[in-house]
Design a protein around this nucleic acid. Structure first.
Lengths: 141, 141
DNA sequence: CTGAGTGCAAAACCTTTGCATGATA
DNA sequence: TATCATGCAAAGGTTTTGCACTCAG
């Protein structure tokens, strides 16, 4: 589904609809990860008449253009969150869900090098850290 | 769920069935990540009459006991791999599936440090690289 | 006006679960 | 023999897709 420009191929023209705006705004105002369904519910609750399919489609688009981060949970669900411009990774507490953004100084470089060393191109990397945050570690005692 | 009984009750006794054996053996002989469905297909192709549900159940059990690692792919699928002894990462071709093992000298350290810096403990990290291998890159022209 | 974007609902997908049968200890 | 494990098929949940309609450009 990548915009395969046929000619001078500018790109997929993206229309500015109230739904997309709402979607974006809601994400902007949300710090934590949310599921598509949650997002849908919240938007409806907020008065929007957006459909679930549209939420998914919008999320897809946003994820593709790198405006949101996606994360898979242990139970197979997909969570979305507004994403900073810059590439970073997550340190997620497996108990309470607390998420901390971290960036890997060397990770990006390493990934790139490992890829090139093996003749790979168009490389993306998935780096997620899971653990127990301080609070949960204490609570576990 | 917790195997707690030791007297008269119901212990979670694990029986040794040909299906489980086959499942285990197949995983032992597989380096890369496989999906439950793939595993099922391969086992069937190999003559086993194992059912898909059994594969899932077995995988669940193995994952629980820490004998296999699970990983979610970008498209929501779940992949399983025999639990590594030594920790390494994978560089996977998203086109032909070619998998190369790579290890990140600094990654482990970085992960550990990032975790400690944020007060996290019991940290595990998932690092996977996806890209196009040399062959597929050429083929894609 | 034109066509991308939308909503609805059905479809597609992966995974889990219920139940009767078969195998194991 | 008593259970646990299996297989099949149906159920469950999430994400995608088809289609007619609406609205942005």
């Amino acid at each position: 589904m990548s915009p395969q420009a046929s000619s001078t191929g500018t790109d997929a023209v993206r229309r500015d609809t109230p739904q997309r705006r709402a979607l974006r705004e809601h994400l902007e105002g949300t710090e934590s990860f949310v599921s598509a369904q949650q997002l849908h519910d919240q938007l409806r609750a907020g008065g929007s008449r957006i459909g679930l399919a549209t939420v998914y489609r919008g999320l897809q688009t946003l994820a593709e253009s790198g405006e949101v981060d996606t994360l898979r949970t242990d139970d197979g669900g997909t969570l979305y969150r507004k994403c900073g411009e810059r590439h970073h990774h997550h340190l997620v507490c497996r108990s309470c869900g607390l998420t901390v953004e971290v960036d890997g100084p060397g990770v990006e470089t390493w990934a790139e090098q490992a890829a090139q060393a093996n003749g790979f191109s168009q490389v993306t990397h998935v780096v997620e850290l899971f653990g127990l945050c301080a609070g949960c570690t204490a609570a576990q005692a």
